[in-house]
Amino acid sequence: MTHTKKRIILNNIVMILSTLSAVIGIGFLFWILSVLVINGIDALSMTIFTEEGAPPGYEESGLKHALIGQLMIVGVATFVGVPLGILAGTYLSEYGQKSKLSETIRDISDIMMSAPSIVIGAFVYAVVVAPMGHFSGWAGSIALTIIMLPIILRTTDDMLQLVPSTLREAAFALSAPKYKVITQVVYCGAKAGILTGILLGVARVAGETAPLLFTSFNDNFLNTDMNEPVASLTVTMYNYATSPYEDWQKLGWAAAFILSMFILSLNIIGRLFIMNKKGK
């Protein structure tokens, strides 16, 4: 066998193997999505959005309580986590740069990003829930903020560093003070990237269950008092899906479907922003 022939065969083997792996990987994604869509759409109805939870066997039951609770918990986490993350990322990229402090913060947030979310839930349970004496929506938001923070911080840091330093120099050369260089020029150049980081960060925490089990717990009815346990789609889905009642299981599918579509669309929008940026 000639050398060339060998090379062609080897090339084909590697190509087939890698294509196969890719197909298997993507296959699982579509399998999950199709099961979700089939069961989810079947379970969807108008009452899902208009009715609260009900005991098994009731016709009029829905997920209104969990949808609103989810929005409140994630909303508060976003409201606190986004500005905090952006400011911290700005510090790392623009002020701390390569200093020891910022390199340490970068390392710690990389570790935080891969920390099991259940550990963060347990931590918030210990420092917030236990002293307060009861579960609360606030505690849930705190846990999600902690999970979101390193994601937004690191993407902001990375995206700001992608802005060419000549752009900063050009603004300085026009006599701009540092805070104006950052807010008017650097942010402008990185806004698509920062927005992507926010979307991906929100998408990440919106799907969390474990930290909420320890913190916001659950409520089968609508509760808008963040001082009390608040329902969330994820915990509701967990409770309903593992229950023995068929109508609750159906609601669980609906919750899974709504949640997945929400997170999927956040991810797609986020990726579109990145593609747009690369296209420029």
Binding site: T166, E169, A170, F172, A173, S175, V185
Partner: peptide
């Protein structure tokens, strides 16, 4: 004040976004 009086043009165009 100095940079108002002494301006600079860079190697690569630096149009702001």
């Amino acid at each position: 004040n100095l940079r108002i009086q002494i301006g600079m043009i860079f190697q690569k165009p630096t149009a702001f976004p």
